[in-house]
């Protein structure tokens, strides 16, 4: 399949003795929206972090648009140079739970920083793009505000715009609304929904069940470092195969 954006095969990740990912297999096609749910500590975030190489896979394969950033041959991980990995990971954008905006840069500068830094855009082009993206997330009037003057929801929207400025093919969201006050969650989710309408490929780790059900093409349920079930939302929320998922959903809803 040509439009396969991400392919994960038998991915393991351990931190010392602690086995966090225990043989993950996952494929994400272009335009697909996959939500990853599951209890805390099940490895959802670690999976995302492995995809964009914030964590190095202990073993297994990770392919981004058919290019490996982790690859296993005869039981041994092959070495891939850091700059090659960095290049391949540029196809992905990531949004963090804690925003991680640059506090010494204004909203607009936050967005323009990376495209200019890596020489992809001139300063002028970046500013035009940045203003467009700010307008898209509804924050055109905040272009010159420093992050400390923005609400949590506004910060997260700037963070989404910043990730989009790198023109990624896939967006990864790591619990994008978990650090937000309840009344601010909606504005961030609606930005993500807009992206969904534009056919952006996305992997979203979230605890917002209603949102996940509404926006996703597929739901992945993880527990103890494994994918227990991956299915369409109606199936997974309506009639999951696994009793563990039922228990989890009962607690969540």
């Amino acid at each position: 399949m040509n439009d396969l954006m991400i392919k994960v095969e038998d991915l393991h990740k351990n931190f010392g003795e602690l086995e966090v990912l225990n043989g993950i297999n996952l494929e994400v096609s272009q335009g697909e929206i996959v939500s990853v749910i599951g209890p805390s500590g099940s490895g959802k975030s670690t999976l995302l972090r492995c995809l964009i190489h914030l964590e190095k896979a202990s073993s297994g394969n990770i392919l981004i648009e058919n290019n490996p950033i982790a690859s296993e041959k005869n039981g041994k991980q092959t070495h891939i140079a850091e700059n090659v990995i960095r290049d391949r990971c540029r196809k992905l954008g990531m949004v963090f739970q804690n925003f991680n905006l640059f506090p010494h840069k204004t909203a607009l500068e936050n967005i323009c920083e990376a495209p200019v830094a890596i020489g992809r855009k001139s300063k002028k082009e970046a500013v035009i793009l940045g203003e467009k993206l700010l307008a898209r997330v509804g924050l055109a009037d905040k272009r010159d505000s420093y992050p400390c003057y923005l609400s949590g929801g506004q910060k997260q929207r700037v963070a989404i715009a910043r990730a989009l400025a790198m023109e990624p093919d896939v967006m990864l969201f790591d619990e994008p609304t978990s650090a937000l006050d309840p009344e601010l969650i909606g504005e961030v989710l609606s930005v993500i929904k807009d992206l969904a309408k534009e056919n952006m490929t996305m992997i979203i780790v979230t605890h917002e069940m209603t949102f996940a059900r509404e926006v996703s093409d597929r739901i992945v349920f993880m527990d103890e470092g494994e994918i227990i079930e991956a299915a369409a939302p109606e199936k997974l929320f309506g009639n999951p195969d696994h009793p563990r998922i039922k228990t989890f959903l009962e607690k969540m809803l």
Partner: peptide, 22 residues
């Protein structure tokens, strides 16, 4: 904070760019 390094990294910046700009 570690998050500043991580944000720079996922935006494709290398070590030098991260240190000097962020």
């Amino acid at each position: 904070e570690k998050g500043q390094y991580e944000a720079s990294k996922v935006l494709g910046m290398n070590y030098r760019q991260t240190m000097s700009r962020i």
